[in-house]
Amino acid sequence: MHLAGRVWLCAGDPDPESVQAGVALIADERGSVLVDAGQSPSHAREIRAALLAAGLPPPRWLVYTHHHWDHVWGACAWPDVEIVGHVSGADLLRAEATRPWSVRYLREEVRSNRRLGPSFRARALAVDSWDELRVLPPTRVFSDEVELPTGVLVRHVGGRHAPDSTIVVVPDSGVMLLGDSWYPPPAHLRTPTDEPDLALVGRLLDDDIGWYVSSHSPPLTLDEARRAITG
């Protein structure tokens, strides 16, 4: 779906049990910027086919909004891209890459920690072939902010959902991609008092940005985002 300017969206699955994040493409003839990779190699291939059918330039850069599996497990199906991510996420993904991912491993982990069940069941359903899955850390890391050659801004915001949470701003299109930055911690780490971090979103709102896109929610206009924060 075309959102605004040169920003296109591939929506995730609205069923929360599938844990499938949306993916964005910032089109540019010099090389597009892909924001998040898809939850699996097969999901990434579906997105690639949709972008090809829409006639959009292929990605040259892949930006991780954070290290969680549903945002990065499709990276191995995107050839010839430079992967950009926050330095803290790189360390976490290097550790994730050493784990023996398989259905057997998922079962063993859930036996040790039942709270992992929903996430790990979703992983088992998402991956068609464990032999092709490779968890890829970023090949280019940053600490605070980096601007890509196409004018796309990548900025670390942190937060409780993930230490490496990153937003992507496309000033010429008036779009801010929030990833999961304002969401509470993942379900297996969440406590009854954890709530969405609306204050974080409030600090990010900008009169020059007309659209705010979260990975698991429909896009909001600036006015809708303001109303969501104030209740």
Rank of each mutant, 00 (worst) to 15 (best):
R123S: 11
S119T: 08
F120P: 08
W101E: 01
L92D: 11
R94E: 13
W101A: 06
R121Q: 09
L93Q: 04
A124C: 04
F120C: 12
V135C: 06
P137W: 11
R115C: 03
R94Q: 08
R121I: 12
Y105P: 02
D91C: 05
A122R: 06
R123F: 15
L125R: 14
L125E: 05
S129K: 07
V103W: 12
V103K: 15
L106A: 15
P137G: 00
S119K: 05
E108G: 11
S102P: 03
E132C: 09
R107V: 15
A126L: 08
V110R: 07
E109P: 00
A124F: 10
L116N: 01
E108M: 10
L125Y: 12
S129L: 01
D91F: 05
E108V: 09
L136Y: 08
R94M: 01
P100C: 09
L133G: 12
L136M: 13
E132M: 10
R99V: 13
R111H: 15
R104H: 09
V103S: 05
R111I: 09
D91T: 09
E132K: 13
G89P: 04
L133P: 06
L92R: 07
L92C: 01
N113E: 06
V127W: 12
L133S: 10
L116E: 00
L92W: 06
S112P: 09
D91K: 00
L93I: 02
R94L: 08
A90I: 00
A90C: 09
R107E: 15
E108T: 13
P118N: 14
V135Q: 02
R107G: 12
R123A: 15
L125A: 14
S88R: 09
P137H: 06
R111T: 10
L106D: 04
E109W: 07
T98I: 03
G117A: 10
A124H: 03
G117M: 04
S119C: 07
P118G: 05
N113H: 10
E109Y: 09
G117Q: 11
V135E: 04
S102T: 05
D131W: 14
R114Q: 10
L133W: 14
F120E: 04
A126F: 04
R115K: 10
L116R: 14
E108D: 15
R134N: 07
E109Q: 14
Y105F: 13
R94F: 00
P137N: 03
G89I: 02
V110E: 07
S88L: 10
D131A: 10
L116Y: 12
V127E: 02
P100G: 00
S102F: 03
R99L: 15
L116Q: 06
E132Q: 14
V103C: 02
G89Y: 08
W130R: 04
A122M: 08
P100M: 03
A90P: 07
L93T: 03
L133M: 13
L116T: 02
E96N: 06
S88A: 14
R121V: 15
G89E: 04
P118E: 11
T98P: 00
V103M: 05
W101M: 13
R104T: 08
R99H: 13
R115T: 02
W130M: 06
A90F: 00
S112A: 14
W101G: 08
N113D: 15
R123H: 06
W101Q: 08
E132F: 12
S119V: 07
A126M: 03
L125H: 12
L133A: 09
Y105A: 08
R121K: 05
G117V: 02
R123T: 05
S129E: 05
